[in-house]
């Protein structure tokens, strides 16, 4: 079965969506990602959608849901590389993904995760690392 690969980079998970998403693929990704966050105790999730050209309301909602789930599992989630057309479509669909962090590219996204984790560590209310 077709799957979107999830890479582990230190305590972060990297999801790069290289194909156009269809509904089943999005559902599988949702399962896999939540599973892996718990298994690896991942602190950060980076979802790169720079190759994604077409979104519909379902995929938009799935993206938003995946990000929200990752956040509930206490992983800093960043969606990076959204194309202008996709951003406009999502806004028109009313899916503004409140609370989801975004960055222009993977590099900026990783820095954002690092900074967020750093802040958490300093604030001292982050989950103690086992």
């Amino acid at each position: 079965m077709e799957r979107i690969p999830i890479l582990r980079l230190r305590d972060c998970l990297l999801v790069t969506i290289q194909v156009d998403m269809h509904d089943q693929l999005a559902l599988t990704l949702q399962d896999d990602l939540t599973e892996l966050i718990v298994r690896h105790q991942a602190r950060g999730v980076l979802i790169d959608i720079s190759a994604l050209e077409i979104v519909d309301s379902f995929i938009g909602r799935m993206l938003s849901n995946i990000a929200a789930m990752a956040r509930i599992l206490d992983a800093v989630t960043v969606v990076v590389g959204m194309r202008p057309a996709v951003a406009i479509t999502l806004v028109e669909l009313g899916l503004e993904m409140p609370g989801v962090r975004t960055a222009l590219n993977v590099d900026a996204g990783m820095r954002l995760i690092e900074r967020a984790l750093e802040e958490e560590r300093q604030a001292g209310h982050g989950r103690s690392k086992g």
Binding site: V79, V80, G81, M82, R83, P84, V86, A87, I88, L90, V91, E92, E96, M97, T102, A103, L104, N105, A108, G109
Partner: peptide, 12 residues
């Protein structure tokens, strides 16, 4: 507001 939201989605 829409423009702002779209820019935010892209990470700006």
């Amino acid at each position: 507001l829409k423009t702002v939201a779209a820019a935010r989605l892209m990470g700006a």
